[in-house]
Nucleic acid binder design. Structure first.
Lengths: 347, 347
DNA sequence: GTGAAAGCGCTAACAG
DNA sequence: CTGTTAGCGCTTTCAC
């Protein structure tokens, strides 16, 4: 381990001078400075961040707590936080609770979660983090919150009960509204919807957007055109079966997997997607770009969520007044091939 | 910030004693000890890890460098490393190079990569990591390696040129061999293969496994039954078209996406998968479980790769003799519904 | 049992 | 321009 002290010895100056030079603080003769720099290089000096931070009393680090890193949305969000941090010279430390792997969708054992979370927060605090980003693995109201936290925290892809802390999620409703509007613009009037479960936040929001688009275009909302799936492909197939028999010309599946189910149904019944029937999904999962015809879907601003969190967090760290609002980031419509004009525009 | 010193003041003992008690080192009267513990609790004492580690001269931390966190295999591997570390009281720090996002599949700009990597390693070293896991985003021979590294390093999902360092990958060949063997056991003799590009490590290995299975079962290898795709669904459709016309009864797609392409082709031509024709994929992507019929595929031991890396790394850190072998972890065959008996077992 | 002292690597304030 | 000193929070001898 090459230390400042060793360099000082070799160059016959004091540690302070070496420190100054290495940090570009000037205060050394041209010659000495060069000698020090060269020696540092030659001896492969690597500053010890632990010591530096201990001394400076600031870690320049924020903590990311993820509910589960292996769930599809999480890596992108972490990536966003990471990128933003890099850009502003901050660092991250990652704490993965592995909630999904441990408990799947069982969110009833609040106590266990609470315990895990508190341990995680404590751990982050031990690392002297200056703020924390909490990344949920699906959008929902969190019922457990850190018991004791001494730094700013911000929630991504979920939002805390009671709105005591800021949160960044995406705008489900407008995305669904835009997508439905696009279908209407293409001449579709009988548009089926394949929702997720009714108790899902996403279902509710997307349904609202769908309904608003219909309303604003003077189309009667027909509850018979709404089916409820469970986000799986097979539930999409089942819903498609029902919907297509009602004579819909377009189907809006609330996620890409269920949209694939619609594809499957159509393939079986030799309905040509984009011609005989239009289909849209949601989430922009890998498969949506790969299927044929490519699936029109909604891209989630995951990376932006991460970046926005970082920005808000650093503002909060900088003692700016924190507002505890929920920020909703817009999604982008990915118009691809699966939505075509209505085959029989005459109503 | 509650420090040991403050606790010492409050309890009228020295910092040394507080330290001893807090670390369960004994050397204090029952009464004093209890008082100290209580005070620490009450004042929400959180140990400062920076100071602790600086003093102890060991960080208990390993660094994970990922080529790109957002590529499908990476989070699982990171999760595996993380889990293993947690189990042995180690910590991780994550450094994401974002190679895929920055350059996509362009690995020609070696210099840039080299620079990024060196910066990353330097950064990790600054954090006093005791070892490094490098997570590639696809299996290949790495042409750039850290210029200077002073701690053990181990490669996951890729392997370094010249084999100077240990690596952990998975066993493509045996997985393909097992899968092909399964098809043969079900009576299939004309088995088509849809490979990835010929210059891919995965293609080569899997092809070897496929060929070995044929050979061991006395089936002539017919090059006409091998098609080359580019891992995308649409290339799977195209390959299926060719293969199925040759009269194959089973198709082994070298990834799930291309297998989905086969599904699509079959749906269009009303071929029933698992009955009229058997299909298998590789990778166990989400879609494979969701499609109908569910796709028989190969599960990649991603988490195990992470765990194995951690184990090997900690051994290396413990000064155990390091061997620089490539460890190949077995994949598991996920037998689902898409492979059925051969429709006309008479050859 | 308990505490004083020294020091991990680094920086900041101040003196020369 | 350069060095001395002190100290960040913690632990570890080694005396008492």
């Amino acid at each position: 381990m090459t230390t400042i002290k060793k360099i000082a010895e070799c160059t016959h100056v004091s540690a302070a001078t070496v420190s100054n030079v290495l940090n570009g603080k000037g205060g050394a003769s041209e010659a000495k400075a060069r000698e020090i720099l060269e020696t540092a290089q030659r001896m492969h000096y690597t500053p010890n961040l632990l010591a530096k931070r201990l001394k400076n009393q600031q870690s320049n680090t924020i903590g990311i707590i993820t509910e589960d890193l292996t769930v599809f949305n999480t890596p992108e969000i972490v990536d966003g936080v990471d990128a933003a941090c890099e850009a502003m010279g901050m660092e991250i430390i990652l704490g993965n609770m592995r909630l999904y792997k441990r408990y799947h969708n069982d969110f009833t054992d609040t106590q266990k979660h609470q315990q895990l979370l508190d341990k995680m927060v404590e751990h982050m605090l031990s690392h002297q983090v200056e703020g924390i980003v909490y990344v949920g693995y699906h959008c929902r109201k969190l019922v457990y919150l850190p018991t004791r936290i001494t730094v700013p925290i911000i929630y991504a892809y979920c939002y805390p009960k009671g709105q005591k802390y800021p949160a960044v999620i995406y705008d489900d409703e407008n995305a669904a509204y835009n997508l439905t509007t696009l279908m209407i613009q293409k001449g579709h009037q009988k548009i089926g919807a394949i929702c997720g479960p009714l108790d899902s936040f996403h279902t509710l929001e997307r349904l609202k957007g769908y309904q608003r688009a219909l309303f604003e275009n003077g189309i009667l909302f027909n509850p018979g055109l709404v089916q409820y799936g469970d986000w799986t492909r097979s539930s999409g197939v089942a819903a498609a079966e029902v919907l297509i028999q009602t004579g819909v010309t377009a189907v809006f599946a609330f996620n890409d997997e269920m949209a694939c189910g619609v594809y499957e149904y159509c393939a079986r019944h030799t309905l040509k997607i984009g011609t005989d029937i239009s289909v849209a999904g949601f989430d922009n999962r890998d498969v949506s770009a790969d299927c044929t015809p490519s699936l029109t879907t909604v891209n989630l601003p995951l990376e932006e969520i991460g970046q926005t969190c970082t920005r808000l967090l650093t503002e909060a760290i900088g003692e700016k007044p924190v507002d505890t609002e929920i920020t909703r980031l817009p999604c982008t419509l990915l118009e691809r091939e699966s939505i075509g004009p209505c085959p029989n525009p005459a109503k």
